[in-house]
Amino acid sequence: MTLLGSYLTLAAVLFCLGLYGVLTKRNAIVVLLSLELMLNAVNLNLIAFSKYGMIPSLTGHVFTLFTISVAAAEAAVGVAILIVFYRRRVTVNVDEFDELRR
């Protein structure tokens, strides 16, 4: 019995917490951070499988590095969009980001 199940359960807990934050929070920065939390849960899965999976290999680590880079790029662009939006409509609430819907 390895710890794989426990790691996967922890990742599931973190993913669900992040999903809850994305769905319910109104502050755009908290929403972005919850997204990062979800990506981190996925990374934990990848690394756990690369040690405890059927064929241990370093491919999971490589994928984790790529995911971290994509997450960093996403955070940078997200904060840039947030600042532009704040400049136009002085708010950071995500439920006021509805210009395309109106």
Binding site: L4, L8, T9, A12, C16, K51, I55
Partner: peptide, 18 residues
């Protein structure tokens, strides 16, 4: 997710990381 994880028996790893 929880019941899927608990219901799966993962095969033991064959070998170790370098």
């Amino acid at each position: 997710l929880f019941f899927t994880i608990r219901g799966t028996d993962f095969p033991a790893p064959a070998g170790a990381l370098p």
